[in-house]
Computed example of a mutant assay.
Amino acid sequence: MPEPVRKKNKDGTIKSEIYWLRKKVPERFRAVVGRREVWRSLETDHFKTAQVRCNKLSLDLDKEWQDRLLASRSAAKKAAPTARSMTDFELSGLQRVVHEQGRDRIRNPPPGAKWGQGTHVRDEEENDEQREFDEQALDDFLSRTGYVLAEADRRRFLPMFVEAQRQVSVDLARAAMRQDYSESKAFDNNAPSLSARIDLHEAFEFYCDKAGIKGGANGPTAKRWRPKIAAFCVFVGHSDLCRMTRDDAYRWVDHLTEEGVAKKSIREVWIASLRAVTGFQIERLKFTGENPFARIRVRGVKGTNTSNKKGFTDVQATKILTATCAAFSHLTAPETRAARRWIPWICAYND
C-alpha cells in the first residue's frame, strides 16, 4: 500500500501540511487511465487519518481502473468494423486477391488432393442453391481476409468473386492435367492486388494500440491526430498507405498552407502524425518501402535551435566537479559512490 506524502518545493521544503496519495498506475491500466501516476488529496494534515484514507482510496482506484479496463475491452469486442464504399479500382484489386489465394492451393495442395476432376463452368442463370453457395463462400472469404463491404459493393463484387473462383478451378485443372503451373493471364488487366494494401485508418489504430501513444486510442494525442489522418485520406482519394507518395505529402503541405493552417501546426501535427504512423509500420515490418512523410520540410518554420542549449556556468561546473571528490557517507553503496564520483566527469568530458 502507498504511504501518504506531502508535496514539496524544488528546494525540498514542505509545500503544504496536507497529505496526498501518490500512486503509480500499473502498466495494464495506463491505456485507460492515460498517465503513469496519479495524485489525490487526502484532505487532512493528520497522519493517522491520512493513512486510513490513503489505503481506502488506493483500493478504490484499483477497482475503478479494473472496471474501466473491462468496459474498454467489452466495447472493443462489441464494436463492429465499419463498412466503407470501395471504388472499382479497389474491387478489381480484391478480385485478384481471390485468385491469388486460390493459386496458393496449387503451391501447397492438401494431402491426396486431385485437382481438375469435375471442373465446372457455371451457366449465367444460376439457381438459388448455387447463388446461396456463392454468397456463403464470399462471406467466408471476406471474414478470412478482414474486408467489410457495404451492401451495394457486395452485390457488385459477387459476380467478380464467382469469376475469380471459376478461374481458380481452370488453373488447378491445367496444373493437374498438364503440369502447367505458369501464372494465369486472366487478371493481367486487373488493378494491383489488395493483399499488399495497408489501410491508413487501421494502421493508425494499430499505432495507438501498440506504440504506447500517450493516453492510448482515447487519449488527447489520438483524438487530435485521428481527424488529420482521415482528412489526408480524403485529400488523396484513398486510404492505401502503399500508394501514398512523397509528392502527396508535399501537395498536402501546400494545400494546408493555402487553407491558412499554421505552418508550425502543419509540421508538428498534420505531417508528424502521418510520419509516426508510417514509421511504426516500418518498425513492425508491415511496410517495406521508404517513409514518404519523413524529412518533409515546411518552409517558413524555424527549426529547433540546439546552439543555445542551457548549460552550467564555470562556477557551477567547478562546484559540481569539486563535490565529486568529497567523502561519501559510509551508508552509501559502492556503486552509488562510483556513479556520483565519475558520471559528472564523464558528462563534462563528453560536453
Rank of each mutant, 00 (worst) to 15 (best):
I229M: 08
A231E: 03
F232A: 00
F235Y: 11
G237Y: 12
L241A: 13
C242V: 13
R243Y: 01
R243W: 00
D247G: 07
D247M: 14
V253E: 07
D254V: 11
H255W: 12
L256Q: 00
T257G: 13
T257A: 12
E258Q: 10
E258N: 09
G260Q: 03
K263R: 15
S265C: 08
R267V: 00
E268C: 06
V269Q: 12
W270F: 11
W270Q: 03
A272P: 06
S273H: 08
S273V: 14
R275W: 07
A276E: 11
A276N: 13
A276Q: 14
T278M: 10
T278W: 09
Q281K: 08
I282D: 05
L285Q: 12
K286H: 11
T288E: 15
T288A: 15
G289T: 01
G289V: 00
E290F: 09
E290C: 05
N291S: 08
P292E: 05
R295Y: 09
R295D: 12
R299M: 11
G300T: 14
G300M: 12
V301M: 07
K302S: 13
G303A: 08
G303T: 05
T306E: 06
T306A: 06
S307F: 04
K309W: 04
K310Q: 13
G311L: 10
G311W: 14
F312E: 00
